[in-house]
């Protein structure tokens, strides 16, 4: 009986870890240079129209919940700075790091890390192993943000 438990555990691990690993490895590798990620996460260039949808979609970027945006929409949040002109204030590489993982710049920030898997605690079952945005959604969002000048 005492032996059975570790055996079952080992089996469980064997079954579950490859899945978890393969999800983890879905994160495309990126290189941080100072406070930016200079190279795009994907080979397909970002699409500003799709990026705008990502920014407004409640279940994806949901930027408008915390940031005032230069769009016609009721009830824009004000926890973070307004996004109007953000494409002028930052380079695309700087914005990329801020969206991928703002906490690398300011560990105290309340802005979620939109492309991070490690170091999270008590993630809801349906989101375990998934990033908030896909790499392509990050690039699309960036393409849109760079139009805000």
């Amino acid at each position: 009986m005492r032996l059975a438990i570790p055996a079952a555990l080992a089996l469980l691990l064997a079954l579950s870890s490859p899945a978890a690993l393969s999800r983890d490895t879905q994160l495309v590798p990126f290189r941080i240079v100072e406070d930016s990620i200079p190279e795009p996460l994907t080979s397909q260039p970002g699409d500003p129209a799709r990026g705008r949808e990502v920014a407004l979609d409640r279940s994806r970027g949901n930027c408008i919940t915390c940031h005032n945006m230069p769009v016609e929409a009721d009830f824009q949040g004000n926890l973070g700075p307004p996004l109007d002109g953000v494409g002028e204030r930052y380079s695309i590489g700087e914005l990329r790091l801020r969206i991928v993982d703002m906490k690398r710049i300011n560990p105290e920030s309340n802005m979620p890390s939109f492309y991070r898997l490690e170091g999270l605690h008590g993630v809801r079952r349906d989101w375990v192993g998934r990033t908030i945005l896909t790499a392509q959604e990050v690039e699309d969002l960036l393409a849109y943000l760079m139009t805000l000048r």
């Binding site: 979609d57 409640r58 279940s59 949901n62 919940t65 915390c66 009721d74 009830f75 949040g77």
Partner: peptide, 10 residues
Amino acid sequence: VKVTIGGCGG
């Protein structure tokens, strides 16, 4: 009547 939109996307 404007109906509020909650902050949390869920």
